[in-house]
Structures are given as C-alpha cells and as structure tokens.
Computed example of a mutant assay.
Amino acid sequence: MKKVISIDIGGTFIKYGLVNEAGTVLCKDKRATVKSGAEDFVNELCEIVNLYNDHSDVLGVSISMPGFINNRAGIPIACSHLRFIENYKLQDELASRTNLEVRVENDANCVALAEKFSGNATECEDFICVTIGTGIGGGIYLNNKLIRGKQFKGGEFCYMMTKDKEGHQILSQNSSITALIDMYKEYKKLDKTVEVLGDEIFKEAETDENVENIIHEWYGNIARMIFNLSSILNPEKILIGGGVSAREDLIYQLENALKEIPWWHFVECKLEKCKHENDAGLIGAAYNFINP
C-alpha cells in the first residue's frame, strides 16, 4: 500500500510521519518548529522528508499548516505564527529540493478532511469542523466538497463577531482557550504575563463559583458560534476538535449552553467530537494528497 509523508506544522511543534492510503498513521514523531527564517524552515522540512528516503512506495509530501493557504499553488498567504513564510513558494521549493510531489493545505481544513476520510463524518455530505485551542479554526464540507473560498479564507470562524464588548469583538477573543485564560486573569486581576493553563481553570471551577460562571459564559460564547453556523449552513453535524476536545464533558456542556438559546430547536444539528484528535493534521494532509 502506498504512503504519504505527512507534515503537520504548528506554532510550537512540527509533527510528521507516514500515513498509508487507508488513513492509518504508520509512524510519527515531532520536533520544535524552526522560526529563524524561511531558509532554515525549509531546510528543516527537507530533513524530515529525508528521514523516509528508504521508502520506495512514498507518493509524495503533504503539509498541514495554519493560516490562509493557497492550496493550488502551495503558498501560505497569511500565517500569524510564521510570518517569515508568508507568500513563500513553499510547495515549489520543497518539491524542487526533494524531487517529490508536494501539497499544502490549511490545518483546520485538514481536520475536516481527516474526519471525512476515516473519522466521524465518513457518511456525511454536509458537516462543519470547529477547532478550539489557542485560536479558533474551521473547516466546511458542503455537498460533499471542502469549501475553501475565493481567497482561500473559507472556514475562518475566528473572525466571526458574536458579541460587542468595548467595541467590536471577534470569536477568537471570546471563545478560544486563550480567551478563557484572559477572562480568568481579568477576574483574578492577574498580570497578562502570568502563565495560566486551561486545565487549572477548570479544576478551580470545582470549588470557586465565580470561576465556574466564567467557564459557563465561555461555553455560551462557543454555543452562539455553533448556533450561527448551524442556522446559516444547516449541516448534518458540527464536530469539535482542538485541545478542548480532550474534555470528557465538552459535548454535554455545549449542549446545555445551546439549550439556553431559545431558537436552537429550529436549527439544531448533531454535535460530536472529532475522532482523530492529535493525528487529525497528519491524516487530513494525507487525504488531501490522495484525493486532491
């Protein structure tokens, strides 16, 4: 069975491995993301590809990465965590250096592709993936097709405005894990430089009613996003991925928050977690290569 070298690039780590045509991750590893410039960054990717030189059955290289990605040309148009790679002809350069076919796609789109490939949306023609972590990402699948948009910005839910607070406020400012941490720091009157982990907040909520209320408000923000997406696109499912999906009570909490919206029953859809969790980028990238 043929294999794809899958590379999932994040702001902190690069995850990589071999994925076969059935969507099985055969091996994987990770290393710190190089941020010293485009040349060093591409050299690092070449080193990763060279790890699999002895595999004669490799079809090519497929990359999942954050930002607005021109998937046709393989060019990152905007990438907030990796500014140095913006407008760089990544696909062409890596293909030239490795003599392999290369494809590049947005990371949240890859999550949607992974769920369609072998996850919780294999039988769905219309579904949405929402990734909730440091920021908010999204992938839209309609009429059995991934929606990328005219300027490759489809599914950028982070820019959705869900409420107005001291001027305009977008979704990433009130519904991401970063937003939850900021809300907690504001309540605790902590300096913005103080490190706080999301898990610590959920733990403290068990004994502090005010922290519990902060989390309830945060879930409400996410619920409004889900409501808006469901009312506009009428999907069969909305799948939740990203770091927050590790919480066992996630779907229960979101469903309760949605029930507080009086019109939810008019536009209601099924809510589930994404299946592939940390392997979603690798699997989705492989699927993007196999089914362009």
Rank of each mutant, 00 (worst) to 15 (best):
Y52T: 01
D57L: 08
D57Y: 10
V58M: 06
L59T: 03
S64V: 05
S64T: 11
P66F: 11
G67M: 15
I69A: 05
I69Q: 05
N70I: 07
G74V: 08
I77S: 00
A78Y: 13
H81C: 14
H81M: 13
I85Q: 09
E86L: 04
Y88V: 12
L90K: 08
L94W: 05
L94N: 01
A95H: 04
S96E: 13
S96V: 00
T98F: 03
N99Q: 12
R103G: 00
R103C: 03
E105F: 01
A108S: 13
A108Y: 10
N109D: 13
N109Y: 11
V111E: 09
A112N: 04
L113Y: 10
K116C: 08
F117H: 11
F117N: 08
S118M: 04
S118N: 14
G119D: 08
N120Q: 11
A121K: 11
F127W: 06
I128R: 01
I128S: 02
I132G: 05
I132V: 08
I136Q: 07
I136A: 05
I136E: 00
G137E: 11
G138P: 09
I140G: 07
Y141A: 08
N143I: 01
N144A: 13
N144S: 15
K145R: 11
L146C: 02
L146H: 02
F152L: 07
E156H: 01
Y159K: 02
Y159R: 01
M160K: 08
M161F: 00
K165W: 07
E166H: 10
H168Y: 14
S172Q: 15
Q173F: 10
N174L: 15
S175D: 04
I177M: 13
I177W: 07
T178G: 01
A179R: 07
L180F: 07
I181K: 06
D182S: 13
D182V: 03
D182I: 09
Y187D: 07
K188T: 00
K188G: 04
L190K: 06
L190W: 09
D191T: 00
D191V: 04
